[in-house]
Design a protein around this nucleic acid. Structure first.
Lengths: 123, 123
DNA sequence: CGAATAGTCAACCGATCGGTTTAACGTTTT
DNA sequence: AAAACGTTAAACCGATCGGTTGACTATTCG
């Protein structure tokens, strides 16, 4: 009886999302994009990184579905797409009961109530 | 006024955790460990992978703090450590407002109330 | 028009990845 | 003591990583 594996996992998506998040530069870029939409150049500057370098990072974020791009003239505006972050969050929360003590005791309480109920039925 | 970057981020930890989660085999191993503690061999078997291969994956998980090992005789028992998953979850939730529509509209409501209040003061 | 700007592409770099194989080590079994 | 077991270590493999440079394509500005 698998506890967590019964949920089919969209491996490819999660691979891409977690991989994208595994780099501190990319996490910082997402942080910037949380404030406002930014061009590649604006994303590159604070990291003293070449345009090409930033461009590659953005593409990784794009492939993970975490960022979308709108080309306007010669500039590429990047926008945060948080839906995929929610996907990663959903995966993580399958483990929530393992770290959240409150939830654990709540669960224990509910279990105790269930048992009490079951006992009552038996009587 | 940075929205998300004011929180100091423990980059090294997050790097390791997200990197560990970026591999489907390792995620599956965590899933197995969520049910019960397992030895390296038990972790290796379902993935038709050499012991050495599994051993390397476990070490990645260990380095990320997601797994701890208890050596008992010649076997190594692996246990899930969810605290670090909570860390990753905490990072993700900083973006929750970007994907959670309910939260968004609540915020809009509060903003509207604030504006109403500000208007009232002006009058 | 020509020059500057914003960005990509392709090649390249050393480092790390996921995985294997072979050898070795300590533990348990016989 | 010898054989079997559970695991790690080291060397190696091709692939991918993060990053650079230089050449190229568009768009905008003077």
């Amino acid at each position: 009886m698998p506890i967590l594996n019964h949920m089919v996992e969209h491996s490819a998506h999660l691979d891409a999302v977690f991989h994208a998040l595994a780099d501190p530069t990319r996490r910082a870029m997402l942080g910037q994009l949380a404030e406002r939409e930014l061009t590649i150049g604006e994303l590159a500057t604070p990291f003293h990184m070449s345009f090409a370098g930033a461009s590659k990072h953005v593409r990784v974020l794009e492939n993970a579905g975490l960022v979308t791009r709108t080309i306007r003239g010669r500039t590429h505006l990047c926008r945060l797409e948080a839906a995929r972050l929610a996907e990663a969050d959903a995966w993580l929360r399958r483990y929530e009961r393992f770290w959240n003590a409150k939830l654990d005791s709540l669960e224990a309480l509910l279990r105790a109530e269930d048992e009490a109920k079951a006992k009552k039925v038996k009587e």
